[in-house]
Amino acid sequence: MKNLTGKSRGRRGFTLVELLVVIVIIGILASLMVGLSGTASRKMRESRTRAELVAIETAIGAYKSKFGHYPPCNPKDPALNSLYYELTGCLYSPARKTFRDPKVGTVMKVQAIKEHFGVEGFINTARSERELKQFYEPTAKTVSRISEEHGDDDSAEGPKKHHADEVHVLCVPVPWPLERDDQPVRHHGKVAKGVNPWRYVVGQSVVNNIGKYDLWAEIVVGDEVLVISNWRKETFSREQLSRYYKKKKRN
């Protein structure tokens, strides 16, 4: 029907109150999305870490079945342990008294091993690769190389490149944030940025799994450091970690 007055009806715009309501609703939805995204990211990190925890526990169990004891730990530093070498195996030369990593070819003497890992050598060794017992297959995400020759821009992931003085450690599949000041590992006094190793304690120093071993990971989620361990099913804050283990952290 035509407008008899000859005037067209103008469209009614939003009032200020209506605009404010819409803005508030958008803000609420955005905050919910951010919260859900953060929760999903945390669960994904925890899931990946727990899966790797089970894999390492399985490897340690197979190691114990073979040798009758658990792999040794570093009595001075749970984070700088020799699990990588014990679970993947090393070639030993009795004549030279050296240990060679068959994956990258680096050679270490007993003194260097003692300085790095607090042990007199590696137990899981053989004279040929055919004789080696490999209990764990590391990937680029689960092993990091540490060397004083590495610069800050040199990625530490994986065993591809190597230097004569480098060592390898099993790492959590969630890297340590580069911007944090509390980097877990030092090598020859130099901070190994981004390296997030598995912490491992066995023997009389064990606090939780008496008679066995304590194995745990620390991951950063936001501003909080969370612990995933083999003695508690749930994830917990690092503030709840044993004071004894906190004292063993390197300064």
Results as ranks from 00 to 15, higher is better:
4 L>N: 07
9 R>S: 15
10 G>P: 14
11 R>F: 13
11 R>N: 13
11 R>M: 13
12 R>W: 02
13 G>S: 12
14 F>A: 11
14 F>Q: 03
14 F>Y: 08
15 T>D: 12
16 L>A: 15
17 V>P: 00
17 V>T: 06
19 L>G: 05
23 I>Y: 07
26 I>V: 14
28 I>C: 09
32 L>M: 14
38 G>Y: 08
42 R>V: 03
42 R>W: 06
48 R>S: 12
49 T>A: 10
49 T>C: 02
51 A>N: 11
56 I>E: 03
57 E>H: 02
60 I>H: 01
63 Y>S: 10
65 S>I: 06
65 S>R: 10
67 F>L: 14
67 F>M: 13
68 G>L: 06
69 H>T: 12
71 P>V: 02
73 C>W: 03
74 N>L: 01
77 D>Q: 11
81 N>P: 11
82 S>K: 07
82 S>L: 09
90 C>W: 02
91 L>M: 08
97 K>N: 09
97 K>L: 14
98 T>P: 00
100 R>D: 01
102 P>C: 04
103 K>Y: 11
104 V>H: 15
104 V>W: 12
108 M>N: 06
110 V>Y: 00
110 V>P: 00
110 V>H: 01
126 A>Q: 09
128 S>F: 00
132 L>G: 11
134 Q>P: 00
139 T>F: 04
141 K>W: 00
142 T>P: 02
143 V>R: 02
144 S>R: 11
146 I>H: 01
148 E>R: 10
151 G>L: 09
157 E>T: 11
158 G>N: 08
161 K>W: 09
163 H>F: 13
164 A>K: 14
165 D>P: 04
165 D>V: 05
166 E>I: 06
170 L>G: 02
170 L>Q: 05
170 L>M: 04
171 C>V: 15
172 V>T: 03
178 L>H: 06
178 L>M: 12
181 D>N: 10
184 P>F: 12
188 H>D: 15
190 K>I: 12
196 N>D: 11
198 W>E: 08
198 W>G: 01
199 R>W: 09
204 Q>H: 15
205 S>P: 00
209 N>V: 01
213 Y>F: 15
214 D>W: 01
214 D>L: 11
216 W>I: 05
216 W>V: 01
218 E>P: 03
225 V>I: 15
226 L>M: 13
228 I>K: 08
228 I>H: 07
228 I>D: 04
230 N>V: 02
233 K>A: 07
237 S>A: 07
237 S>Y: 05
246 K>S: 04
246 K>R: 13
247 K>Y: 04
250 R>M: 12
